[in-house]
Amino acid sequence: MIIFLPVLGSLIYVVTQVFNKTNLDVVQDEIVQMINPSKKINDLQKQLDFADTFQNHVNLADAFFEAGDYNNAIATYEKAIKDDYSKDDGVVKKLIVSYSKTGDHDKTVFCAEKIVGKPGFKGSKSQFLYGLALEELERSEEAEENLKAIDQRYSNYRERYILAQYFIDKGKSKDGKEILLEIISESQHMSKPNRIKYKDVVNDVKKLESSL
């Protein structure tokens, strides 16, 4: 009792005093959405039906995107921008991901080229997906140029692993191995949370490097 009552009392205090009603409603909504993700989509669809606005389209599309329903995300994002790809770069970036996930390489390239000169594109994952799509469309020189931009130290580990594979497949094993060795070296200086987070990709990197 001596041990547990203070803990229980502290918890009650946090719930009743620290959290206000709005915070509790937000936490409750997040729990419900985790248990039943379709509820969020249904609620956002109702909001869109009530008010057909750009933001309501984007909110619904974001919910489809988060749920991995990329086809519906694409359809809803496209309705939001109505062929005006200068309207919102964030939406275009999510369209790039969505089209990439669905294997539509032409549309991936099309969307990427709408923001290719915008700030934040160079070295981004959008540019990397653009490069992968270009390779699929047999535009190899352009592909390599865009893919290489993702090779930034202490970041983009999965993408750099894919880039290393790309170089190896292209007969550029030296370039691929160099990237793999860099990742292995960087992994030795990771914080504990990052070691856990990137454990799988680092293991993949080590396996690929040892096979060369």
Rank of each mutant, 00 (worst) to 15 (best):
K39A: 02
N36L: 03
I184Q: 14
K170C: 06
I81T: 08
K93Q: 12
K46L: 14
E141G: 12
D49F: 08
A112H: 01
G123K: 10
F121E: 06
N56C: 09
K177T: 11
Q45W: 03
G68Q: 01
Y161G: 02
R195E: 15
E159I: 05
S210E: 10
Q152N: 05
I31E: 00
G68V: 00
E141C: 09
K206L: 06
R153M: 08
N194E: 13
E159M: 07
S10Y: 15
V205C: 06
D69E: 14
D200H: 09
D104F: 03
S185Q: 11
N20Q: 09
D52M: 03
D49W: 07
K40V: 00
D29C: 01
F4K: 14
V116E: 15
L8S: 09
G123M: 10
Y13A: 15
V97S: 08
A63N: 02
I2S: 14
E136Y: 08
I150M: 10
G120D: 05
D88G: 06
K118G: 01
A51D: 14
A75V: 05
I196S: 05
N42E: 14
A51H: 12
D69T: 11
A112F: 02
T22A: 15
V27L: 01
L181R: 08
S126I: 00
A67R: 10
M190S: 06
D89L: 06
I196T: 08
P6A: 07
K148T: 03
S155R: 14
G120Q: 07
L208N: 03
K21F: 03
G9P: 04
P6S: 08
D25N: 02
V201P: 02
L129I: 08
R139Q: 15
K170S: 13
G90T: 06
K87V: 06
E135N: 14
Q47L: 13
L212I: 10
R160H: 07
T22S: 15
V109E: 04
T16Q: 10
A63Y: 00
P193V: 11
I31A: 00
N59F: 02
L129R: 15
H189L: 14
L48T: 08
S98I: 02
I96R: 03
D200T: 10
L24C: 00
K21N: 09
Q45Y: 07
E209G: 03
N71K: 15
I184L: 15
D106L: 11
Y161F: 13
A51G: 03
H57W: 04
Y154V: 02
I96K: 05
A61I: 03
V15M: 12
V116P: 00
L181M: 11
L163D: 02
F128R: 03
A67S: 14
K172S: 10
K79D: 12
Y130M: 01
